[in-house]
Nucleic acid binder design. Structure first.
Length: 504
RNA sequence: CGGGCCGUAGCGAAGCCUGGAUAUCGCGCCACACUGGGGGUGUGGAGAUCGCUGGUUCAAAUCCAGUCGGCCCGACCA
């Protein structure tokens, strides 16, 4: 027997976390790099996961009164210039289309021809083009609210990209709403961040903290940005979703105005909110282990994979028949409101290899069925969250499949929550703050830090220290709103308590 | 965009410093055999214009210049 590696993924998380992350994506067949710089190919297994995320989110958007629509990929450059802060925040990272044709060049290749009057930018986000459209749609308070979402791809010419976490092109949804009053828009902003938190916790099994961003971390042009923040296994924070209250900034820039009931001409109040394929990265870094990806059952493209075991053709037909009936019966069972998703893997590959294939891809449950099991009417099941397999009778298994998946989903959440708790601290002085965010081994930093909850008085004063330690203010958690104390750095009275962390 | 490391078969690497013949190894892949509740064993085989462009040279994977791409760190990050 050839020696198998100790872990399916190498290096392990402890050895080299960033490299581990890359390897999990590869081993789990989620995505790969493309010939285009910073852009990735999402492979079928990764895309099926994304589709499950989309479906769940989309249902939640519909349930909160939104409809889908679609706006253009291209935005006239002038649109981006309208909102001052927005220009500042976006201009640098945009892909720009300047020509509309190709023609042969003398060297035998092709060259751009047909210069555009006005350059088009590839949308980095759609506030401007959607706002311009809304301006035409809104005349009266009776036209409000507008509650629209779009599923789209956007391009941000990032200088440093990482699969799923920050790619030049990514898939996302962006909600854009218009309201007659500030209160209503604020309410919408909050409603949607709660939808995201609900999705993160109940579908992704990823605990998140809802909070508001400090002025420096806000979306350009927003009055308030709410985010959900999650702790990854290397204890860094990941912003997993944002919801912006845009006030009247965009409606003024784009003249989204309406006549109120009282007959006054008023500017509307807008919001925008989004989550992206970054959530796949979040999922990987929240649950995966040194054997590969671990999928929360609710989002798993396949809940159960059946691995038939046989030696020859006569055994094969017997086993396949049994396995097919098992598949049918499992598919009549429900988990979290949907029928169990079962697949049979009858590929002609070695048993061990086949098993590891599914382990690395994160399939929650593997079922092994061979002639001996059929004799006893039993199955051998392996759970992705446990290393050992157990034998169950067929009826026991079928009867408990829903419970097992529910247990696994909850188990993943609990484990992630524990990690966050274990690595969250309250800090009220600079020395502790420094110690918390400084690795013991400077040359090869070990996994360290976490979430530090600290009072602070003024964002600007903290800047040098935060820069030095590479720490950022993640958010001012909703639940710590209103708490007061003294600034961990200056000792001055502080009106805010925030989560500080290193971040992606 | 700055710093560092790196592009050699599908994947991972050696060779490069000190230029020279058929570019080496492991995994994977294909075929056959033995196997068979586990990433197994054996035999045979396929697969690489050494990232790209140019230069130096009788001769370049190797030296030089440029360029494209990747990873990590940093700056930036809606």
């Amino acid at each position: 027997m050839a020696k198998a590696p100790q872990t399916a993924i190498q290096p392990t998380r402890a050895e080299d976390y960033p490299e581990w992350y890359q390897q999990v994506i590869r081993a789990a067949d989620l995505a790969e790099n493309s010939p285009v710089r910073g852009c990735m190919v999402i492979k079928p297994w990764g895309y099926r996961l994304w589709e499950n995320m989309q479906r769940a989110l989309d249902d939640m958007f519909k349930a909160t009164g939104h409809q889908n629509a679609y706006f253009p990929l291209f935005i006239p450059m002038s649109f981006l210039e309208k909102e001052a802060e927005h220009v500042e925040g976006f201009a640098k990272e945009c892909a720009v289309v300047t020509h509309h044709r190709l023609e042969p060049d003398p060297a035998g290749g092709l060259r751009p021809a047909g210069k555009l009057e006005e350059p088009l930018i590839v949308r980095p986000t759609s506030e401007t083009i959607i706002g311009a459209t809304y301006a035409k749609w809104v005349q009266s308070y009776r036209d409000l609210p507008i509650l629209i979402n779009q599923w789209a791809n956007v391009v941000r010419w990032e200088l440093r990209t990482r699969m799923f976490l920050r790619t030049a092109e990514f898939l996302w949804q962006e909600g854009h709403t218009v309201h007659a009053t500030a209160e209503e828009a604020v309410e919408e902003t909050e409603r949607m961040i709660h939808v995201y938190a609900d999705f993160a916790e109940n579908w992704m099994a990823m605990p998140v903290t809802i909070g508001s961003k400090t002025p420096a971390e806000r979306f350009p042009g927003a009055v308030e940005t709410l985010s959900i923040e999650a702790m990854m296994q290397d204890r860094k924070a990941l912003q997993a979703g944002t919801s912006h209250f845009l006030g009247q900034n965009f409606s003024k820039a784009q003249e989204i105005c309406f006549q109120s009931e009282a007959g006054e001409r008023e500017f509307a109040w807008t919001t925008s909110w989004g989550v992206s394929t970054r959530l796949v990265g979040a999922l990987i870094m929240t649950h995966s282990d040194d054997d590969g990806f671990v999928l929360p059952p609710r989002l798993a493209p396949t809940h159960v994979v059946i691995l038939p075991i046989y030696r020859d053709d006569s055994q094969r037909s017997e086993v396949m028949e049994y396995v097919e009936s098992l598949r049918k019966e499992l598919a009549t069972q429900m988990y979290a409101g949907v029928p169990i998703r079962v697949e049979i893997d009858d590929r002609d590959v070695r048993g061990g290899e086949k098993k590891w294939h599914h382990v690395k891809r994160g399939v929650p449950i593997r079922v092994e069925v061979g002639p001996k099991d059929i004799e006893k009417d039993s199955v051998f099941i392996g759970r992705r969250d446990q290393s050992k397999s157990v034998g169950l009778t067929r009826s026991e298994f079928i009867g408990s499949i829903g419970t097992i998946l529910t247990e696994m989903q909850q188990g993943l959440f609990d484990r992630a929550l524990e990690l966050r708790k274990a690595n969250s601290v309250d800090i009220d002085n600079e020395a502790d703050f420094r110690a918390f965010f400084t690795p013991k081994n400077e040359s090869e930093p070990e996994i360290h830090g976490g979430f530090a909850n600290c009072f602070f008085s003024d964002e600007q004063t903290l800047d040098p220290l935060l820069k030095e330690l590479k720490v950022t203010i993640r958010c001012i958690p909703k639940e710590s709103k209103g708490e007061t104390g003294s600034c961990f750095l200056t000792g001055k009275p502080a009106a805010h308590k925030a989560i500080f962390a290193k971040a992606y």
